[in-house]
Amino acid sequence: MLRHGVKLYAEIFGNAQGECQYSSFESGEIDLFASYFNDTGYNSFFFSSYPIEDITQIKQFGYFYDTPSSYSIEVNGGRETDKSRELIQMRMIAKNPDKQIQSFYRTLQRNLKKISGLQKHTQKNYFHLPTDKIIIPANPHSQNTRDHWEDFYLSKLESAEKL
Rank of each mutant, 00 (worst) to 15 (best):
D66R: 14
V75M: 02
Y22Q: 09
A160C: 09
F64N: 03
S23P: 00
H128M: 08
A10V: 07
D147A: 12
I115D: 06
S116N: 07
Y42E: 08
F64M: 05
N38S: 14
T145C: 11
T122N: 09
F25T: 02
A94P: 05
T81A: 08
R79H: 10
S27N: 12
F61E: 03
L32W: 03
K59V: 09
R85G: 10
K124P: 01
K7H: 15
K59H: 10
F152C: 13
N76P: 00
L118R: 10
I58F: 04
F45R: 01
P51W: 04
L154A: 13
L163Q: 12
L87P: 01
G78H: 02
E19L: 07
A10R: 00
A10M: 04
D31M: 11
H4F: 15
Y65N: 11
I73C: 00
P130M: 06
D31Q: 14
T56M: 05
L163T: 03
I12S: 09
K59G: 14
S23L: 15
W149M: 14
F25A: 02
N144E: 09
Y36K: 01
I88R: 08
N139Q: 11
I93W: 07
C20R: 08
S155A: 15
H4I: 07
S27C: 11
L32G: 13
L108S: 05
R91K: 12
K95F: 02
Q89G: 09
Y50P: 02
Q123D: 15
S155H: 12
P51A: 08
D82R: 04
S72D: 02
D98W: 02
S48F: 06
E158A: 15
T122R: 12
Y9T: 10
L8S: 02
K113H: 04
E74K: 13
R85I: 15
E158M: 15
I55G: 03
Y22I: 13
H128D: 03
N111G: 11
N43I: 05
A16R: 13
N144G: 05
R110F: 13
I101K: 03
N76W: 05
F25S: 02
R110H: 12
Q123H: 11
L2V: 04
T122F: 01
F37M: 09
G41Y: 06
N144Y: 11
G41N: 03
Y63P: 01
K113R: 10
K114G: 00
L163E: 05
L163M: 14
Y63C: 07
L157W: 14
H148S: 14
K120P: 08
E29G: 07
K133G: 12
G28S: 13
D151Q: 15
S103D: 13
S24A: 15
K99L: 10
S35G: 10
F104W: 07
P137F: 04
Y105N: 07
S155G: 08
L108F: 14
K83C: 13
R146N: 10
E29R: 06
T131Q: 08
S49P: 00
Y9S: 10
Q60M: 08
Q21A: 13
G117F: 00
K133W: 09
S24F: 06
Q100F: 05
W149T: 12
F33T: 01
Y105C: 01
I58V: 14
I135R: 11
K162Q: 14
S103E: 12
E80P: 02
Y65Q: 15
T107A: 11
I115W: 07
Q102P: 01
I93H: 09
N139Y: 09
I58D: 04
Y153F: 14
